[in-house]
Computed example of a mutant assay.
Amino acid sequence: MPLHLIKLCVGVETLEDLQAAIARRQAGGGDRYVHTTRMQPKRSADLIDGGSLYWVIKGNVQARQRLLAVEPFTDMQGTGRCRLVLEPVLHATRWQPRRPFQGWRYLKPEDAPGDLGTSDGSDELPAALRGELASLGLL
């Protein structure tokens, strides 16, 4: 059974900002998209068995990227770190409110928001309106 990670997307205001950042990093060369984190997940095998990294943007889970690999390494200062190798494709999700937290957390599949496009009609709403309705607990 796949397991997911959830992480705050610091410095990003909108889903479009995150998409632009991914595009910039991909344009810089290389065939892999990685996110470096301090701690290595102990349940790596579960994560790469169909898991995703869910991004919290401005207090709401708004997107996910599929996890392809988890690669521990030691940086030049001798500190252990971890590369999360991600699919460069960003999948917009239904908005789900989240409180701030540090680092990343595991996210069970049953707690993960669904992708947009499996519609109840809210998917067609503008992002700003969807955000306002989500903050009111109406989505």
Rank of each mutant, 00 (worst) to 15 (best):
P41W: 04
Q102E: 14
A23R: 06
W55C: 07
S122W: 10
C82G: 09
R81C: 14
M1P: 08
P97N: 14
G11A: 14
L5V: 03
P100E: 12
G29H: 04
Q26R: 11
D49G: 05
T118E: 12
T14A: 05
G59H: 09
P2N: 08
M76P: 00
W55K: 02
L139N: 09
Y54W: 04
L139A: 11
V70H: 00
G114P: 02
S122L: 07
I48T: 14
P72Q: 08
L107W: 02
A63I: 01
R105I: 01
L90D: 03
L5P: 01
Q77L: 13
T74K: 10
Y54R: 00
D111M: 11
L138N: 14
H35A: 06
F73Y: 15
H4A: 02
D17V: 07
I48H: 02
R83K: 11
E13S: 10
R94P: 00
S135Y: 02
A45H: 12
E16T: 08
G103F: 09
D115E: 15
P100Q: 12
A112S: 05
G78F: 13
L5Y: 04
P126S: 10
L68C: 06
S52D: 04
G80W: 02
D46C: 05
Y54P: 03
R130V: 06
G117E: 04
R24P: 00
F101D: 07
M39N: 13
H91R: 07
L84R: 01
Q77M: 12
V70S: 03
N60Q: 15
L67A: 04
S122R: 12
Q40P: 10
Y54F: 15
I6L: 15
Q96T: 07
G121Q: 12
V12R: 09
G78Y: 12
Q102F: 10
A69Q: 11
R105Y: 06
D31Y: 06
G29Q: 05
R64G: 00
P97K: 13
G117R: 01
G121S: 09
L8V: 10
Q96C: 13
N60C: 15
T74M: 08
V10P: 00
L139P: 07
L107I: 05
Q40L: 14
T93I: 02
T14V: 07
S44Y: 01
L68N: 01
G29L: 03
P97E: 11
L67W: 00
A134C: 15
A27C: 05
A63H: 01
F73E: 10
A45I: 09
E124Y: 09
Q77G: 13
R25S: 04
L125Q: 08
R38F: 08
A45L: 10
E16Y: 01
L125W: 07
L90S: 05
A21G: 12
F73C: 06
A21R: 08
A20G: 04
D46W: 10
K58I: 06
Q96H: 13
R83M: 04
R25L: 02
K42P: 05
K7P: 02
G29W: 06
L5N: 00
A21S: 09
K7Y: 03
R99Y: 12
N60M: 13
Q65T: 06
